[in-house]
């Protein structure tokens, strides 16, 4: 199965460190390797501070990794500079979390939508109106909105504008960083449906970052679970409740409130909170919260190993 899917991006052993002071550094991403398959969605779940947004910034070329490579169509994008980097950015675009803060409040919707196209000189100013109408129709909005300002739109409409702007340049990869988190559930569902439709039509590759494992499960092909800068589990996004192996993934799943849960049972969750990335434990990053910690967990950091076809987990207890 994996042979026939084209890997559009390969993240290879990427580490990103930020210097906090002369002697200390914060490891936001620790030796991460991930594949992005063409036309599919890779969902990335994790709690605050797990490095998921840093990873996305690396993919977008906003930041450069401390070590490791990001291969996009055979080319290491971490080496790109100047005009080549600017050109590259057409191919990976981003949808932001908060649609009310992602736009300049004094720009009209058509200016927002066409700015990237004008920037890359793909259209003329005289074509703006027609292009804006086309983009608005693509995201199921009325072309009349083109002359409005962002504040006149609802949150859901604004997020559709965010998606339309990101897709204006016809990128191959779309990165959605918590793009549905600020929205109401019913709107959230519609945005996810829209993304899935656009993915099918345009053969888009999507990186979908979200803290809500149930939502990611509904729209991703593959799920990567991150914890304190490491990918702890990478699994096909089918029946994850049955297939998940890593104790952290299981803890995330059991902490979800959904309508099918047993309301009489006490909600299950691991105790304590994730340590600060400045203060990571030796060995397995998850060990101080793990219910089944063993001696080896403190000595060695478990690597990501195959537990089933296309399914990898980083845990000593599974082997």
């Amino acid at each position: 199965m994996s042979e026939e899917r084209e890997k559009i991006i390969r993240v290879e052993n990427v580490t990103k460190e930020y210097a906090v002071s002369a002697s200390r550094s914060l490891i936001a991403c620790d030796n991460i390797s991930l594949p992005f398959f063409r036309g599919q969605t890779l969902g990335i779940v994790g709690e605050s501070g797990c490095g998921k947004s840093t990873l996305m910034r690396l993919l977008l070329g906003v930041e450069r990794p401390t070590s490791g490579k990001i291969i996009f169509r055979g080319q290491n994008i971490c080496d790109l500079k100047g005009e080549a980097l600017r050109r590259h950015r057409q191919r990976i675009q981003m949808v932001f979390q908060d649609p009310s803060e992602a736009f300049h409040p004094k720009m009209k919707i058509k200016e927002i939508l066409c700015e990237p196209l004008l920037n890359f000189r793909l259209i003329r100013k005289s074509e703006m109106k027609a292009k804006a109408a086309e983009l608005l129709t693509m995201v199921e909005l009325s072309p009349d909105l083109a002359e409005r300002y962002p504040h006149a739109l609802s949150g859901g409409q604004r997020q559709r504008i965010g998606i339309a702007r990101a897709l204006a340049l016809e990128p191959e990869v779309l990165i959605c960083d918590e793009s549905t988190s600020a929205l109401d559930v019913s709107v959230q569902k519609k945005i996810v449906e829209l993304l899935c439709r656009l993915q099918r039509e345009k053969d888009l590759t999507i990186g979908f970052i979200c803290h809500d494992i149930a939502l990611v499960h509904s729209c991703a092909h593959t799920l990567a679970v991150m914890y304190l800068g490491s990918v702890v589990e990478l699994l096909p996004c089918g029946d994850i409740e049955e297939t998940a192996r890593h104790p952290y993934t299981k803890a995330l799943l059991s902490a979800v409130f959904d309508l099918e849960m047993d309301f009489t049972k006490e909600i299950d969750s691991i105790e304590s909170e994730a340590p600060s990335p400045l203060n990571r434990p030796d060995g397995c990053p998850f060990r101080n919260r793990c219910p089944r910690q063993k001696e080896i967990c403190g000595r060695e950091k478990p690597p990501l190993r195959s537990v089933a076809p296309d399914h990898f987990a980083a845990c000593h207890l599974l082997f």
Binding site: S186, V192, S218, V256
Partner: peptide, 16 residues
């Protein structure tokens, strides 16, 4: 009813 249907569930519907 719509609100109930929109709540994502781990065992719930998938769009892909």
């Amino acid at each position: 009813k719509n609100l109930l249907a929109a709540v994502p569930a781990v065992k719930g519907a998938r769009y892909v």
